[in-house]
Nucleic acid binder design. Structure first.
Lengths: 129, 129
DNA sequence: CAGTATCCCTCCGGATACTG
DNA sequence: CAGTATCCGGAGGGATACTG
């Protein structure tokens, strides 16, 4: 999509491309999506387990985030007919399709932070973590 | 970073990785960053020109977005001592470092939308554009 | 033209309490 | 345990008006 002064796509294509990028950003957006995915990397977890591993995310927010990730096909909610019922969440194979995107974001983000540090304007630009 | 059941990084590394991803997301976030970058791809533009090309973004918001992009080193603000003064904004060489990230977001976003359409749950997951 | 100043509204996410 | 219900504050962004 990006290409300075050469083979600029038509406006329609360009809009579609922006939309695609926004879709991707949208899906990973918010405070908890990444931590949530990461915490499920080493296997299925239950609601309360996830909550504990994520430095006390509130149940309302956790519930919402899990639903979104499930709708996106990144994780599966499994119900076990024990008593009381137990429920687990685990990453789907499809979630692996995120690997490349996340890795490219990660490496660019890392590089960019260094770039800003060199220019000494880190604070004015990026958030604290 | 993502790697199911194998070579899980230490918690510290993992946190740093998440931070890097968040940095990258942060920089591209918001309604106007991408359209703004795209509109500057075919050359320097003045404030009012940008405003017109971006379906009437308000001046306050445009001003803020331009400042952020400038602080990130993606564009340069040039002042010309004409009368009245004219000012242009143009992408820097550093902005090209975004190409890969954006392309990977674009292609994943495109693929993901198709994936959702197949599963018929597009509406519940992605935004309209 | 190139912005700044004010006001306003919505939505995200947090706090807290409660239910099957 | 696995969530839902309610209330709430702050940030992002829009509308409108004004300035050098």
């Amino acid at each position: 999509m990006i290409s300075k002064n050469q083979d600029i796509p038509t406006p329609e294509v360009c809009t579609a491309n922006i939309a695609a990028v926004r879709d991707a950003l949208y899906v990973l957006n918010g405070k908890w999506k990444l931590p949530l995915i990461v915490t499920l990397l080493n296997g299925a977890k239950r609601f309360k387990e996830i909550q504990r591993s994520l430095n006390e995310i509130t149940p309302k927010v956790l519930s919402k985030e899990l639903k979104e990730l499930e709708l996106n096909g990144f994780l599966e909610r499994k119900v076990f007919n024990t008593f009381p019922v137990s429920i687990t969440y685990e990453l789907t194979p499809y979630s692996e399709s995120l690997d490349e995107v996340i890795e490219s974001l990660r490496s660019w983000g890392e590089q960019h932070r260094k770039h800003l540090v060199k220019g000494r304007r880190l604070e004015s630009v990026l958030q604290d973590h």
